[in-house]
Simulated scan of single mutants.
Amino acid sequence: MSTWTLDQLQMFIRDARGQQLETARVAAQGQAYNPSHPQEARRQWAKLSLLANRRMLEHADGASAGVAQQDFMLRMWVIDQLGPDDTDSD
């Protein structure tokens, strides 16, 4: 998955469940952290990681604290590294 395009991974996340979502979240987050990507692309990858994370929360069985922590940490990283964007709800 680390070599998939943004669109490929987004399509995968739509139908993924459980560990598949965690794998997709990590792959998207890794792309967001990649400094060789332009800033806007990194934001899009981060948004995709957050989407996978939200989908995990929908299906979390008692693991919602870990999912919430991942969400918080990625959001804080985006604000710190890429800057805040008051126009984006993510």
Rank of each mutant, 00 (worst) to 15 (best):
G62S: 05
R43L: 01
H37E: 14
Q10C: 07
A16T: 07
M76F: 07
F12P: 00
A60R: 00
P84V: 09
A68F: 09
Q81F: 10
V67D: 00
A32W: 01
I13S: 04
L21A: 02
W4V: 05
R43V: 02
T3L: 09
R17M: 05
W77N: 03
D88W: 00
Y33F: 13
Q10A: 14
D71V: 00
L74D: 00
T23E: 15
D90P: 03
A24N: 03
M56W: 00
Q69K: 14
Q70W: 09
R14G: 11
W77F: 11
I79N: 13
R54C: 06
T87A: 10
Q81P: 04
G62W: 04
T5N: 07
H59A: 13
H37V: 03
R43P: 00
K47V: 03
A41W: 01
E22C: 04
R54Y: 08
R43M: 01
K47Q: 15
W77K: 02
M11G: 11
P84I: 09
L57R: 14
P84F: 14
M1W: 03
G18Q: 08
V78Y: 01
D7P: 06
A32E: 04
W45E: 03
R54D: 11
E22S: 13
M76C: 08
N34A: 11
A24T: 05
M56Q: 12
W77I: 08
A60E: 05
W45V: 04
I79A: 15
V78E: 01
G18A: 12
L51I: 01
Q70I: 05
A27P: 04
M56N: 00
Q44P: 00
P35Q: 12
L21P: 00
A68G: 11
M73R: 10
Q31V: 01
A32R: 02
Q8G: 08
R17G: 03
T23P: 05
L21K: 01
Q29W: 07
A16W: 03
D85V: 04
D71H: 13
A52Q: 04
A52C: 08
I79R: 15
M1K: 05
A28N: 10
Q69D: 11
Q81I: 15
Q29S: 14
Q31T: 04
L57S: 09
H59K: 06
A41M: 11
I79C: 12
V26E: 15
S89P: 12
M73A: 04
D80N: 15
D90R: 07
R75V: 02
R54L: 09
F12W: 10
D90C: 10
Q31I: 02
A41C: 05
P35K: 10
M76Y: 06
Q44A: 14
Q39C: 06
S49L: 06
Q44D: 15
L6E: 02
W45Y: 13
S49H: 04
L57C: 06
T23I: 12
Q69P: 00
T3W: 08
L6F: 09
Q31G: 01
Q69N: 09
